[in-house]
Design a protein around this nucleic acid. Structure first.
Lengths: 356, 356
DNA sequence: CTGTTAGCGCCTTCAA
DNA sequence: TTGAAGGCGCTAACAG
């Protein structure tokens, strides 16, 4: 066993409290060899004699050596960092997504840098720049707005968009088939005999909201049921938060003939559910409800909600996998993966006409 | 389905798309000055002539220059990175926590590196080492197990533990007053006349579970109600997942006299709620329920749950603030902040004896 | 006020 | 098989 000089550290209790980090130089010194050899020994590259290798490892262990990633990154190797941009971590959807991403990436030895843009484009753009500055090997994007994607792609950083498509060329996309899912949901209502179906969406300009509204229209058309604009509520058009409930209420008031509501995401579903309760309308007898996206609460309430289940966690891990593929193999052309959602029929939908 | 898109790289648009990143050197060249001057101009330090400064900024803008953090970090300045370790992002509790942390940190110009240990100590330790390797300026810890904390503290990295206390000296702590919250919850049941109260916990060795169980006992003692060991269920003692529901069921079977259940966290509350439903027992008439932690679903179900509300998001931002204080000002002594939870009485609790 | 110099910690030729 | 040397991009001294 090699005795330590006063310079290096660790006292009895097993704790070491030096200010400066232990560097490769010190490890080499401790092992009585040069930095390059120590580097090879620890990195497992090149030729190193067995006993030397061992000694270096021991020294590193003893000193509590942790390689410095900044130095390694600077040297030109990868940063082993991937950026993840979401638009609201408090939304269970994004939390699940993040969990899926984190798992895959961390299994592959990457670190995840998390940015939540809280729905603000400016913040998303800042996040993108931060990823650039960190030399992230790639970035996963599930935010609002297009600028973040542009910044990243312009600088040649591999990007995978999740649950959205900005339309920027050159990035991979992993998304749920929103149109199809919505069509299934509405078709289910139509099969149950509903003809007056309202829909509530969050936004109809971007990504998912647009497609879900489209699915709604397609289902109606296929059943030869007329599409009425007044039965469509786009909450994004209201700006104040408090107005959201009012808007849902107004929708119900303005369309008393409605026997079913299709809620295009979990936030909207919550609103609809609450508003229905508040008005004392019974689900599903007075009004059927289908949600796009299946969160915890939907399985806890009575009746349980009929919902379009999205494989959210899987979508995250899939996106991460795709990104790693691209990072590792330098694949050139962009891919788009569309995941199919699944309608889960539960208690919040029933045959129309029961109330008459 | 996999669609192939067009090639990846960018073109025209007025931006630039070189492989290699733009360096300070090139910016300086473009602006017709030296690297140091360019550095000062961009960084805002030292003396730089007004027109030069302007020229440098223009050049940087034109070239799309993004400073390289690895280089900056290596040079000795801070990495502007903070690690965040949680034990399950899919749990709304941790997601909220992470959101609070992210917001504060990102406002302060820090990046958050997220690690989810999925309840495995080994993974937490790996995460800790990764934070070390990245030279994180500080770390926020809300995981299971003690090793992660030790590794970090041993290496002199500022640590704030959130919602738990490993007992390792030298780290700050931000936590909820679990004992007090639990006492309030159980006292509420006692005031309603309940005497036979069961409690379900997740673990009773660490942090929160232990304190909540203690709060339960204290409340009973204060009301001179005997504490019966058989009314306490610690789910951590079961290892298989599927057994959890069974265990709750067994608890109810073994204690038919029980008129109320205290669920010590949101996961447990979910289990209890489901099991009660499954048995057709009406809440609160057949059995009152109080939960520690107030999640979305608890406000959606009927009756809404009486719960101990924890300021989770705030706890996250508070912890982040504390960490930054310590990082910036180099504060030496550790601080412990205890946040008070609040009992929110809703519909899942009612006077005892109604069923007779 | 500006340029030159010298590393931060690591890895990777290259020569021994 | 090992060691010496150079440089990644940046900034903090020091001259000029």
């Amino acid at each position: 066993m090699v005795k330590q000089g006063p310079g290096a550290s660790r006292n009895g209790g097993g704790a070491k409290g030096k200010r400066a980090r232990v560097t490769l130089h010190e490890v080499a010194q401790e092992a009585g060899t040069s930095r390059s050899t120590a580097s090879r020994a620890l990195g497992g590259h090149g030729y190193v004699a067995g006993h030397i290798k061992e000694r270096v490892h021991e020294a590193a262990q003893r000193l509590g050596y942790v390689p410095d990633v900044s130095a390694r990154t600077l040297k030109g190797r990868s940063s082993r960092v991937v950026g993840l941009l979401v638009s609201d971590l408090r939304n269970q959807f994004y939390a699940q997504l993040a969990a899926g991403v984190e798992q895959t990436l961390s299994d592959a030895g990457y670190q995840v840098v998390l940015v939540d843009d809280h729905g603000r484009e400016e913040r998303a753009a800042d996040g993108a720049r931060a990823f650039l500055a960190m030399r992230a090997d790639g970035v996963l994007l599930a935010p609002v707005g297009r600028p973040a994607t542009e910044i990243l792609v312009d600088h040649g950083t591999p990007v995978v968009e999740v649950d959205r498509r900005s339309g920027v060329r050159g990035c991979d996309v992993v998304a749920i088939d929103s149109e199809n899912g919505a069509r299934d949901a509405v078709a289910h209502l139509l099969e149950l005999g509903h003809r007056e179906i309202a829909v509530v969406v969050d936004e109809t300009k971007w990504a998912t909201g647009k497609d879900r509204l489209k699915g709604y229209r397609v289902a109606l058309r296929e059943a030869r049921v007329p599409y009425l604009r007044r039965r469509v509520l786009d909450l994004a058009l209201r700006d104040r938060d408090g107005e959201a409930e009012d808007a849902v209420g107004a929708l119900l008031d303005a369309n008393p003939e409605v026997t079913a509501v299709f809620a295009a995401n979990n936030v909207v579903a919550e609103l609809v559910w609450q508003e229905l309760k508040r008005r004392g309308r019974t689900v599903p007898d007075d009004c059927s409800v289908v949600s796009f996206d299946d969160e915890t609460w939907m399985r806890m309430v009575e009746p349980k909600l009929t919902a379009v289940r999205q494989p959210v966690f899987e979508m995250g891990s899939r996106a991460a996998t795709l990104l790693l593929e691209r990072v590792d193999s330098g694949r050139g052309r962009a891919e788009t993966h569309i995941l199919q959602p699944e309608l889960v029929v539960r208690g919040s939908t029933c045959r129309a006409g029961l109330r008459e």
